[in-house]
Design a protein around this nucleic acid. Structure first.
Lengths: 116, 116
DNA sequence: ATAATACATGATTATATAGTTATATTAAAA
DNA sequence: TTTTAATATAACTATATAATCATGTATTAT
């Protein structure tokens, strides 16, 4: 393994790390059907404003979502189609009221984008 | 969101968490071409025996790999084809000496299995 | 039986991060 | 221009976990 390879591993690990948090998955799930502002995401996720804001920032740094400021509101959305697919497929499982038993036996295909 | 959904989110987050560690990705990469024992994986990963052993246990608990004890050795391998695909595709990017710049612009499809 | 090899695990430390509370910033409205 | 609403962030606490070191356990060989 070269050092560059180690860097790549760290890079990919961080990408997975961004997805390795229930609240962030819930937020991504909330963005499946289009952009939402922070207040809306706070309601959907049932988290506190401060905590949601932090998770949004982390997801943005991981290039999973993007931010657009309009007036006093900040609208977040899935960064690109690949990430949308990721969100749609991973979180779609949950959204469809699938039970854990069923989920355990289902495979879902995920399109991942290695973030810059 | 129901409580069951929250449980599913936790479940999926843990799956990603298992992948969110460079040393574990390195180990999975080392298993791409078939089973290996702990000593071999220690050499491949350039980690300590204790640390590799712990990561192996975590990967096993996450159902990503399986263990078979033969004699005094413990052979680990990718748990099933889906996980193999995951490993092959995610880690294959690294193994193929791909640079970070290139990796950033490549998409790779990952077949995930929600672990039990 | 004893030694050697292979692997696992307990104890400890250091670090990262999720969540909370309080406060700061920024833009629109009154 | 003061207020209000929306969002971000700093400080702090608690928890999780990666790494290390030392030791335990189990299997084979002598």
């Amino acid at each position: 393994m070269t050092q560059l390879d180690d860097q790549a591993l760290i890079h990919i690990a961080k990408y997975f790390q961004a997805l390795a948090e229930p609240m962030r998955l819930k937020i991504l799930n909330g963005l499946r059907d289009g952009e939402k502002n922070v207040t809306e995401l706070v309601e959907i996720s049932r988290g506190t404003q401060a905590n949601v804001s932090k998770h949004l920032n982390l997801l943005r740094e991981s290039k999973l979502i993007k931010r657009e400021s309009r007036g006093t509101k900040a609208y977040y959305s899935i960064a690109d189609q690949r990430t949308f697919d990721l969100c749609n497929l991973v979180c779609g499982q949950i959204a469809s009221q699938m039970s854990l038993e069923v989920a355990a036996n289902e495979a879902f295909i995920v399109t991942l984008q290695a973030n810059q």
